[in-house]
C-alpha cells in the first residue's frame, strides 16, 4: 500500500494537469488570462453534485455531463463577452477585467443555483459539501488513484491526436500561430476558437467531478483554485498544452508533498499555508524561467552536466 500522502499528491497533480491544459488552450487562442476559468470548474463540480445527490448517479457517470456543461459555459463566455470586446478593439487589460467580472457573475449564478437547490430539495449543505461518495476501491487504494491519472493520460493523448491527426487540429494550430494568415487560406478562425473554447471549458468541467470526489466543493472553490491553475500554466509556459500538463502535474504534486513534509518537519501550522506553495512556484518561475519548462534546453543542460 502506498503512503496516503503520495496517493493524494498523484490525484491532485492529475486533476491540475487537466485543469491547466484547458486554461492554456483559452490563453493560446485569445491571449487573455481567463480569470473566469476557475468558475467553469465550479460548474463541473455542481453538475456532478446535482446528478449524484438528486439522480443517485455514480459521480463518475456525471463526467460527460460536466464536460458538456463546462464547455457550454465556456463557449458562452467567449461568444457573449470576449469575442464582442475583441471586435471592439478592447485592450488586454479591459479583457482581463471582463473575465474577472464574468467570474463574479458565475459565482453569483452558482450561489443562486445552490439557493434554488436549498429551496426546492431542502438541502442544507449545498454551498459547501464534503467529498462525493461512490468511489470504488482497488488493491486498497481509492479509485481516483487510477482514474485521475488515466483521465489525464487520455486527455493528453486525445489532444495530441486532435491537434496532429485531424484537419480541425491543423487549422487550430494555424489559427493560433497566425490568425490573419489562417484567414487568408480560408480557415474560419472564429469557429476554430469557439470549438477550442468548448474543449477548454469541457476540460475544466470534467475536472470538476474528480475534484468533488477528491475534496468536495463549494460555490467559490473554482474561483479560489484559479490561482493554482494559473501557476501551473505559468510553470508550463502558457505556450504549450503539453507543458501545461506537466506544469499542472508538478504543481499539484509539489503542493501536497511539500505541505506534508513541511508539516512533519515544522509542525502542523504549516498546513494552513499550503496554498502559498503554488504562489511561490509562480514567482520562482517568473523570475528564473519566464517562458516555463517548455523553454528549458535539455540538451544544453545535459552538456553542462557532463562538463562539470
Amino acid at each position: 500500500m502506498l503512503d496516503p500522502s503520495i496517493v493524494a499528491a498523484i490525484i491532485y497533480g492529475s486533476i491540475f494537469g487537466i485543469m491547466s491544459m484547458g486554461l492554456t488552450v483559452t490563453y493560446l487562442t485569445t491571449k487573455v488570462p481567463n480569470f473566469a476559468y476557475g468558475s467553469i470548474v465550479t460548474v463541473g463540480i455542481y453538475t456532478s453534485f446535482t446528478l449524484t445527490l438528486l439522480n443517485k448517479l455514480n459521480p463518475y457517470m456525471s463526467i460527460p455531463f460536466a464536460f458538456v456543461f463546462g464547455g457550454l459555459a465556456s463557449v458562452a463566455v467567449y461568444l457573449l463577452v470576449l469575442k464582442p470586446l475583441t471586435k471592439r478593439g478592447s485592450s488586454l487589460v479591459t479583457l482581463m477585467i471582463a473575465t474577472l467580472a464574468v467570474d463574479t457573475v458565475f459565482v453569483g449564478l452558482i450561489n443562486i443555483y445552490a439557493d434554488y437547490l436549498t429551496f426546492r430539495y431542502r438541502l442544507i449543505d449545498d454551498k459547501l459539501f464534503v467529498s462525493l461518495q461512490g468511489d470504488f476501491k482497488l488493491l486498497g487504494e481509492p479509485g481516483l488513484m487510477y482514474t485521475a491519472p488515466a483521465a489525464l493520460a487520455i486527455t493528453t493523448v486525445g489532444i495530441y491526436l486532435l491537434l496532429t491527426r485531424t484537419k480541425f487540429g491543423i487549422s487550430t494550430r494555424a489559427a493560433v500561430e497566425n490568425a490573419n494568415l489562417a484567414r487568408t487560406v480560408g480557415i474560419n478562425v472564429s469557429r476554430v476558437y469557439t470549438v477550442s473554447w468548448f474543449i477548454a471549458g469541457g476540460l475544466a468541467g470534467m475536472s470538476g467531478p474528480f475534484y468533488a470526489i477528491d475534496l468536495g466543493g463549494s460555490t467559490d472553490s473554482g474561483s479560489l483554485l484559479i490561482v493554482e491553475i494559473f501557476s501551473a500554466s505559468v510553470l508550463g509556459g502558457l505556450s504549450s498544452v503539453y507543458g501545461a500538463m506537466i506544469g499542472g502535474l508538478l504543481v499539484g504534486l509539489t503542493e501536497i508533498l511539500v505541505a506534508v513534509v513541511g508539516g512533519h518537519v515544522l509542525g502542523s501550522w504549516f498546513f494552513a499555508y499550503q496554498k502559498g506553495i503554488p504562489l511561490v512556484i509562480m514567482i520562482v518561475t517568473l523570475l528564473i524561467l519566464p517562458q516555463g519548462i517548455v523553454s528549458l534546453d535539455w540538451r544544453r543542460l545535459l552538456r553542462w552536466r557532463r562538463k562539470q
Partner: peptide, 22 residues
C-alpha cells in the same frame, strides 16, 4: 423567496461591469 438576496449583488456588479465595457 427562492434566492438569498445577497447573491444578487454579485450578479448585478459583474453584469454592470461587462455592460459598461461593451
Amino acid at each position: 423567496m427562492p434566492v438569498d438576496i445577497n447573491r444578487i449583488e454579485f450578479l448585478v456588479v459583474g453584469a454592470v461591469l461587462i455592460m459598461i465595457l461593451m
